[in-house]
Nucleic acid binder design. Sequence first.
DNA 1: CTGGGGAGGGGGCCC
DNA 2: AGGGCCCCCTCCCCA
Length: 384
Amino acid sequence: MSRQVREVNVIPLTKIKQEKLSEDEDEDTVSCKACSKTFVSETALQNHARIEHIDRYLLGEDLCVKQYVKTKRKYSVQEQEAMKRRTEELISSMEPTNLMSLASNDVSYIIIKSDGQPEIKRFKKEKIERDKPVRDMRQVKKDKEVQAISGPFECLQPSTRAPSGLCHQMFLSCCQYSAHWRDEHTRRRKGLRCQVCEKPLAHTLEPYVCQVCGIGFDNAKDLSFHSQTSHIKLKPFECTVCHKRFTQQAGVNQHMRMHTGDRPFTCSFCSKTFTQKSGLDQHLRIHTKIKPYRCVICSKAFCQSVHLQQHMRTHTNVAPFQCGICQKRFKQSSHLNYHLKYHNLNMTDEQKQRYEELMMMMGKPQVKADQVSYGLMNGVSDNQ
DNA sequence: CTGGGGAGGGGGCCC
DNA sequence: AGGGCCCCCTCCCCA
């Protein structure tokens, strides 16, 4: 069975230009306390502040040099003093960790918001041309395009190593950020997809690589087990009650609680019980309001990873769930299911037959098209 | 139709 | 090998 290739669409250049260049009316900006220049993100602002103001201040350079070019006049001593004062206020207002973790000399990714200057517009135009993605006409969708999200991405995961308690490491690509997140902030060291673009993350260099899916392993035994369980679909462990098969014995043991009704994990807040500890932990976050999954684009936090994944698609427009009948795409499986329910009512006999064929291909129960709906997840290979 | 939230359950991985 | 932790996915529901 060959791995399905994810369709990744690119945003047309015309659309990128329009969005990047017509942001004057956009209110979602942050402005520099020293020079009032506006930026689309806190990170871009911090980088600007560091390079244009803080470094100059610390090196004893003239803080108004950019203003001379802009206004074509020499600034007075009072104005220079005012700029120095604003810079000192800026420095004192920043968290020490922010000062320490700001990006270094690479300013290529600074996102300049807008200040009407021709050179700034030219800079933006050049940046757009530089960042112009390679277009593949086969991948371009007609309706909603997958957004090309550009960095930098700042990791705000809790970290015991950082003095502030937060990681604060910066990454230029979303995949670099996600690989860091996986390796440093989860117990996983392989697999998983990028949190933003959902592409499979690169694996660390391992000698034994699965020829089907590309996952690497440290030894032949692990690769063999992976091949048997993931691609040959061999599940050696069976539930004695319902004969459902599992890849590991631990899976059977866990599954058995479904039959025995054993729910050993009880919520201390509301007495609700769960078959798995992870279910209880997930539930407890409702009471404790702890939201460990934070969006790297807008910092909104969620209590379940899947909620972050759903939310991220509002930024990226990734829509992995495709209707097998009309090819329309959805960002959530349940949206496709909802769509199919009402789609089914108006299906022709030919479409119903096609639908049932698709269900059989997917290994779903053979049901009549107008009775039940199932989601078809095209492009994303979850069930390998 | 879309975004967000709660729950059940499978499986990867570490000890 | 088995237990436990944790991540991911599906499904359902609501606004």
